[in-house]
Design a protein around this nucleic acid. Structure first.
Length: 605
DNA sequence: GCCGTTTTCGGCCCGACTGTTTTCAGTCG
């Protein structure tokens, strides 16, 4: 084997790289059996990852002192961050890597492999990479290691096959319907009292690694046996007295846990997570001389709460926290202070501002889309077909746009109060100009601007391009702001903070595109927009009538994860109020008056 | 190594399961 390369982190390091280095250090410290430090590094890695600004920038502006603002980072870690940021290296990391030059992160991502296993694999077998491990396991050399056996060797091979076959996490929209069906049929098993979907599915995370299903029943063994025998279950990974892990035919792992009825709330809380939220709750409990686990909240041996989540939160002095917020990103403090936001609800959406039709790359006519939207309970839509430079879609030039506007006026008059707005998804050219003349844009009700090409521009250039488009006096909404496609395409390299700042200044609305593989904006971006007072809209990006459900199915959950209230989402307003708000700031007098979007305060609930 | 409604020292979340051990360590969530 070749001599190990020390891991290097390029200067201009991203927070993710810094976090990865700290995670490695945590693992190395674990291997050495060092107490407490591994957890400290792990915690700091979390804080770094979740930090809303690049630490390299924070350091440039305020030095190591400014780095102390990162949760979990103290003096020693701030110095290590400084070293990483300025030199791209970490002496401690390199020292460990000389001793154990393993691909720690990748190996530990395998089920059943932790720090201790990584160490033994290196010391006894010289395993450095996942490929080394596969070779060793296939050769039957893993089973003889201390702490390993035939079973663990098999598990490693199964884990490797799983990673190869299924790759990473799956989009929420792929998984939720399957698990909802499974939960519904589990409800019909004999002896089952309650069934609930927990975990990241319940928190409506955009991607899901596995599914957690919680059952209350008096006899766990019978329920677990019946569950494991379901036709959807391809393989049982493990089964104990109260829990059972299976892999479905679709490849999805499902963990089922059975608890008694009086513990259901505590267990629901526990299995919904997130882990960080749970840890914070337990620490809060501890401070009150209570103990929180999946069976309840206890004072000594006495259970003081546990039947419902609300009961547990209340006993901890907290308002009930919506699952979408349970990430330890300030929700516990807000629950204590009574300042949790009243999150937007699916039914609050009244309009949809991004809809393509058969005038370009949509499947259905304007009329069909309008009727379907009205039947779905909406009050208005904007038709936003592509524009001329998106040639492959048959994008509209100005003449075609004018013809479409006439068609929309004609149809709108037949819709009995439902409004069809005239719009376009205007293509942003590489230099940030738009491919439709201002005069034509001025005639539209809703001008969405969107990037569809040149995804790989450098960050500064991409940001300047989008900002220029936003500054067009007719641009109302920035569609799918970062262009990512979950599991397929990275977002373009764009400074979202700068986009939000410009949106605040220009009155441009940011879209949350609810197409299930886009969900663009991300939850953290929604949160930033909301905090900045920049309104969003939640749109379907529909290319057919079946897509019109996306905003209520997926978009709203993502917005809720970003702490958005109905006030923050412009298309919860009736059409006239929506249009007034959309154009406010856009067409406000340039100077001489102080007409501004009123600063909106988050609804308290 | 971090941190503070047990605050500058002495704590650090908790329980289940697996596979290995022959009473428990490692891993996971």
């Amino acid at each position: 084997m070749a001599a190990p390369e020390p891991a290097r982190y390029e200067t201009g390091v991203r927070n993710a790289d810094l976090a990865r280095c700290f995670r490695d250090l945590a693992a190395y410290l674990d291997m050495e059996g060092v107490p407490y430090k591994p957890r400290a590094y792990e915690k700091a890695a979390q804080g770094i990852e979740a930090y809303d600004r690049p630490l390299a920038e924070v350091y440039r502006e305020g030095g190591t002192k400014a780095l102390l603002a990162v949760p979990g980072v103290g003096r020693s870690m701030a110095e290590k961050l400084e070293e990483l940021i300025t030199s791209g290296r970490c002496a401690l990391h390199e020292e460990y890597r000389r001793k154990i030059p393993s691909d720690v992160g990748a190996l530990m991502a395998l089920e059943g492999i932790g720090p201790k296993a990584v160490k033994v694999l290196w010391e006894r077998l010289g395993v450095r990479t996942v490929a080394d491990l596969e070779a060793a396991a296939k050769a039957g050399r893993v089973r003889d290691l201390p702490g390993f056996g035939v079973r663990s060797e098999e598990r490693i091979l199964k884990g490797l096959a799983f990673v190869a076959a299924s790759g990473a996490r799956r989009p929420l929209a792929d998984v939720l319907p399957e698990i909802e069906a499974l939960a519904a049929s589990t409800r019909r098993l004999p002896g089952v009292e309650q069934v609930a979907i927990a975990g990241s599915l319940r928190r409506r995370c955009e991607t899901v690694g596995d599914a957690d299903v919680l059952v209350s029943a008096r006899r766990a063994d019978a329920v677990l046996a019946a569950f494991a025998a379901r036709p959807q279950v391809a393989r049982v990974l493990g089964r104990g007295e109260t829990k059972c892990s299976v892999v479905l035919a679709s490849g999805l792992q499902v963990d089922v846990r059975v608890v008694p009825r009086e513990s259901f709330g505590a267990a629901f809380l526990y299995f919904t997570g997130s882990k960080a939220h749970n840890v914070a709750l337990r620490q809060l409990a501890m401070k009150r001389k209570l103990k929180l686990n999946e069976y309840g909240l206890f004072r000594g041996d006495r259970r003081v709460a546990g039947r419902t989540e609300r009961e547990v939160y209340a006993a901890l002095g907290l308002a009930e926290i919506p699952p979408e917020l349970r990430e330890d990103r300030g929700e516990i403090e807000a629950a204590r202070a009574g300042t949790l936001p009243r999150l937007v609800e699916p039914d609050a959406l009244r309009g949809d501002l991004q809809i393509q039709t058969d005038w370009t790359d949509g499947r259905h006519s304007i009329e069909a889309m309008a009727h379907a939207a009205r039947d779905a309970g909406l009050e208005y839509i904007a038709i936003t077909d592509h524009t001329v430079t998106l040639a492959m879609t048959g994008g509209c030039d100005e003449a075609k746009l004018r013809r479409q506007m006439e068609e929309i006026d004609r149809l709108d008059a037949t819709m009995d109060g439902f409004r069809i707005l005239k719009g376009a998804e205007v293509n942003v050219l590489p230099d940030g100009t738009l491919d439709v003349a201002d005069a034509a844009l001025a005639a539209l009700d809703v001008v969405g601007v969107a990037v569809h090409s040149h995804f790989n521009l450098p960050r500064a250039e991409q940001t300047a391009r989008i900002v220029r488009a936003m500054r067009n006096p007719h641009a109302d909404i920035l569609f799918h702001p970062t262009g990512r496609k979950i599991g397929q395409r990275e977002p373009y390299d764009v400074d979202v903070d700068a986009i939000i700042a410009v949106a605040k200044e220009t009155g441009t609305v940011l879209e949350l595109d609810a197409y299930p593989d886009r969900l663009d904006l991300k939850d953290e971006h929604v949160r930033k927009a909301v905090d900045a007072g920049v309104p969003i809209v939640i749109d379907s990006d529909a290319h057919g009538v079946q897509h019109l459900a996306f905003p209520r199915q997926w978009g709203v959950w993502q917005a809720r994860r970003g702490w958005a209230t109905a006030d923050d989402v412009l298309n919860t307003r009736p059409v006239e109020a929506f249009l007034a708000a959309l154009k406010d700031g856009r067409r406000a007098p340039a100077r001489g008056t102080t007409r501004r979007r009123p600063t909106r305060r988050r609804a308290r609930g």
